[in-house]
Structure formats: structure tokens, C-alpha cells
Amino acid sequence: MNIQQIRNATLVLNYAGRKLLVDPFLADKGAYPPFPNAARQDQNNPLDSLPVPIPEIIDHLDAVIVTHLHLDHWDDAAKEALPKDIKLFVQNEEDAKEVQKDGFKNVEVLQEDTVFEGIQLTKTKGEHGRGEIVNLMGQVSGVVFKHQDEKTLYVAGDTVWYDGVQEAIDAHKPEVIVVNAGANQFLEGGSIVMDKEDVYEVHQAAPDATIIAVHMESANHWGLSKEELKSFVTEKGFSSQVFVPADGESYTL
């Protein structure tokens, strides 16, 4: 497999001969206002430009996976750029209806036994924060990818560390795990995705897995920098297992 970090949670996966796009956040730098009730109210989103042009991202694309419909995972620029007949996977019927309203005609709800072009796709659970904020943030999901010719990949999505992530690791034994690790947060309620301690929990649960940390420094409500995470994993002694990619960087695993 090849995994390219585009920006935020946006990934281009080349997996078992298919090109898949995850959580497209494709707008020009500064196209949207800052998320409210959070840091950096003077900075519009996205905070950085795309590292590659949209036509290159969507060229020869086989399918799109949208883990949930928050703006920084599914934005107007993506809706405009993607062909309306593209195969598009979502987490539930509610999201499917919303995406169909945007004109997409080939929408499927991920299950625990979805198969696409020989690739097994398993929807996993997530919790978008802890405590009361979980209900405000709404339902989210992750995805496990399996194919006989590839390593098992777990894209955890917008979740903190909790028992549902442990269960997914125990059930699927992923060799590669992508975590959204920007410690994004509002002024109250704590992190709504993984922070550095959560990344350490993932490593302890899957000590032999390669961890790729994304969803960092791309929107105004980020709380953990790439450099801070790199320093932390070095101090904890597992830096050889963790990649913290720059936008546009890719890994063949």
C-alpha cells in the first residue's frame, strides 16, 4: 500500500490496486471562517494550501470514503470537484441522505462486511471527544481495510482513545494505523480527537504496528503540533513506529 497525507484527515490510499480518497477537505487556504469557540480566531480554515492540485488528487480515483460529514472531512470544494457518479462510502443512512442531496448517485453505507473491488472494508466505532461533548459532535466512524496482498490498515477517524479503539485493534490486528492526532479542541470540553497520550495508548495496544499521525495543524482548533508529537514519541522510545507526515508526504508500507 501507499498512503499519501494530503492535509488534515485527507488521505490518498493506493491499496490492492485501487485508489481511494478518504475525508476530502479540498478548499483553498483560508476559504472558511475559523471554527468558533476555539483558539486562533484570526485564522481562517484550512490553515495551509493543498500540497498537490485537486485534479491530481482525484485523477483515476476508484472510490471515496467519508467517515463523517464535518466540514474538515467533507467540504464544498470536494462536493464540487468530485464526479457525481463516483463510488462514495459513508457511515450511516443519515449521512447517505445528505450526500445524495449534494447530487452523488453511487452512495453506499459501510457495514462490517462491505467488499469493494476485492477489498474488505469494515466500519469501526469512534467517540469524537469525552463526556458531554460527544453528543454535540455527533456520530463518527473509522474503517479497517483488508486484502490478501496487503497489510491490514486501520484508519481510526475522528476519535479519542477509548475501549472502542482497543476493540478494533484486538479484533483486526492492524499492521498500519492512521490516527487523527491533532488534539483538536474547543475552549471547553477537552480534546475531540487523539492527543499525544492517546497515541501512546495506541502504540501500547499495537506495539508492532506502524502509526501514522495526521489531522494536525490544519484547522484553527488544533492543540498538538507535529513537532511536539515527534518529541513526545522520541522521549517515550517509540519514534521508530510513528510517522508524522508533512502535507503531501507519502509512505509505501
Rank of each mutant, 00 (worst) to 15 (best):
V160D: 02
V165I: 14
K173Q: 15
N180M: 14
H147W: 05
G190C: 06
W161S: 09
V165H: 00
V176M: 10
E175C: 00
G190H: 06
V155L: 13
I177S: 07
D158L: 10
D170V: 02
A181P: 03
K151M: 11
P174Y: 04
G189A: 09
D158F: 12
G164A: 12
K151C: 06
D158M: 12
A168W: 01
K146E: 13
D149F: 07
Q148E: 15
A156D: 00
K151Q: 14
D170K: 13
I169Q: 01
Q166K: 15
Q148M: 11
F186E: 10
N180R: 11
A183N: 13
K173G: 02
G182K: 10
N180F: 15
E167I: 06
Q166Y: 05
H172P: 07
I169D: 01
Y162E: 07
G182R: 09
D149M: 08
Y154D: 05
N184T: 08
G157C: 07
D163A: 10
T152S: 11
A183E: 11
A183W: 09
K151S: 11
E167V: 08
A171M: 06
A181R: 03
Q185S: 14
K173I: 00
V165C: 02
L187R: 14
V155D: 09
A181S: 15
H172A: 04
W161A: 12
Q185P: 00
D163F: 14
N184P: 00
D149Y: 10
K173C: 04
E175F: 01
E167Q: 15
K146D: 07
Q148Y: 12
A181F: 10
H172W: 08
Q185Y: 01
G157Q: 08
N184Y: 02
G164W: 08
N180E: 13
F186Q: 12
L187Y: 12
G189S: 12
D158V: 14
H172F: 13
T159C: 09
A183V: 02
Q166H: 08
D163K: 13
F186P: 00
V178D: 07
G164L: 09
V155K: 04
W161D: 05
L153T: 02
N180I: 01
A183H: 13
L153M: 04
L153D: 04
I169C: 00
W161R: 04
V165W: 00
K146C: 01
N184E: 12
E175W: 01
P174C: 00
H147M: 05
E150Q: 15
L153W: 04
Q166T: 12
V176A: 08
Y162R: 05
F186D: 03
G182H: 09
Q166P: 01
V176D: 08
I169P: 01
Q166V: 07
